[in-house]
């Protein structure tokens, strides 16, 4: 560096503000880990399946938060990646390949290619055009799935086997499945958190607020966003793999644009950009859906207005609410 301290002695460096310990995050994961125990103690048994499903969507919501919350890119086609992950799994299992060590690399590569191609086109625009284009690409994936007549077409594809992992069957037992999903969720959370705190993440965060400045500083903002988009798509694909194994069924409905909208709602419900907010949002969403649909088949008549009211009258999502309750600025 050629910058030297100026001739007068510089004042001492102030200490960095103390970092919050991630109390909420640890509490959240401990609470999740206790769910199977709670089921043996009397929580209704279907909660084990429900929370597993919620954690699978939490992985997808977390990946969406990386581009939507951290990168400021409102993608309305994120369900496509869940769908690609689920269909890649379903098709390979149908063709007799159940080994996850083979399925996963293929699936991640498929998601990466789809993300790279659609991302390269959509990232040429911003704002509302970006929302519309990601929505349109999501819809393209939906119709493509419908057209796969060899793999169920419109009706979807039933899987008669689950994946194996290095010969073992981690998905055969519901409790084991639960902990596998929890581990994957924890891994993805740590991974995304590390990405956000890295040099790469700093550029992504900075570009959300002032892309011109970041470009003038010497970064290729478009490339950074594209990389984030690809990583995000791959993580969502992983959740598709888990979802296919849980439901043992794959259908175009996995890719519907309503699903993409629900993912956005999960992220906003939890608190945009906080990462663990997306997890919280996904849990709250799926549990609310489960409870409401138990009350009436017309649960969307209740749920729709809840979304509207939530948008109109709250700010900062559940994480912001928790922060206000405990008097802290962030979680």
């Amino acid at each position: 560096m050629t910058v030297e301290a100026s001739t007068q002695a510089a004042p001492p460096r102030p200490a960095a503000p103390a970092r919050h310990r991630p109390v909420f995050v640890i509490a959240l994961f401990l609470a999740l880990a206790a769910v199977p125990l709670a089921v043996t103690l009397g929580l209704p048994a279907h909660w084990l399946t429900l929370v597993t499903r919620a954690m699978i969507f939490a992985i997808a919501a977390l990946s969406l938060d990386l581009i939507l919350g951290v990168g400021g890119l409102v993608s309305f086609g994120h369900a496509a990646f869940i769908g690609i992950g689920a269909y890649a799994t379903g098709i390979m299992i149908t063709e007799g390949q159940t080994e996850a060590l083979i399925i996963l690399p293929v699936l991640l590569a498929a998601c990466a290619v789809f993300a790279a191609v659609t991302g390269a086109v959509s990232l040429r625009t911003r704002g509302v055009a970006f929302i519309m284009i990601t929505l349109a690409f999501g819809q393209m994936a939906y119709f493509l799935a419908q057209a796969l007549s060899a793999y169920g077409g419109d009706d979807g594809l039933t899987l008669y086997e689950q994946s194996t992992l290095a010969g073992f069957e981690p998905f055969a037992n519901r409790t084991t499945f639960f902990y596998v999903v929890l581990a994957v969720l924890a891994f993805c959370h740590v991974l995304v958190r590390a990405l956000v705190a890295s040099r790469f993440g700093r550029v992504l965060r900075a570009a959300r607020e002032n892309a011109t400045r970041v470009t003038m500083t010497g970064f290729d903002v478009g490339r950074v966003r594209l990389v984030a988009y690809v990583i995000s798509g791959m993580i969502a694909g992983l959740s598709g793999f888990l979802l296919a194994n849980q439901t043992e069924f794959v259908s175009p409905a996995f890719i519907s644009w309503q699903r993409s909208g629900e993912l956005i709602f999960m992220v906003v419900l939890g608190g945009v950009g906080s990462l663990h907010g997306a997890i919280l949002g996904a849990l709250a969403f799926l549990i609310a859906e489960d409870v409401l649909s138990g009350l009436t088949e017309h649960w969307k008549v209740i749920f729709g207005p809840m979304i509207v009211l939530f948008v109109l009258f709250t700010r900062g999502g559940l994480v912001g609410l928790l922060g206000r309750l405990t008097g802290r600025r962030d979680g």
Binding site: V74, V268, H298, G304, I307, F310, V311, L312
Partner: peptide, 24 residues
């Protein structure tokens, strides 16, 4: 009440409205 909000809020609120009206 949404004109002044960012696009994310607009997308989400009108999405909620679609769920309601389709079901209604």
């Amino acid at each position: 009440h949404l004109y002044e909000r960012d696009h994310l809020d607009q997308v989400l609120a009108t999405f909620g409205l679609i769920l309601l009206l389709n079901q209604a």
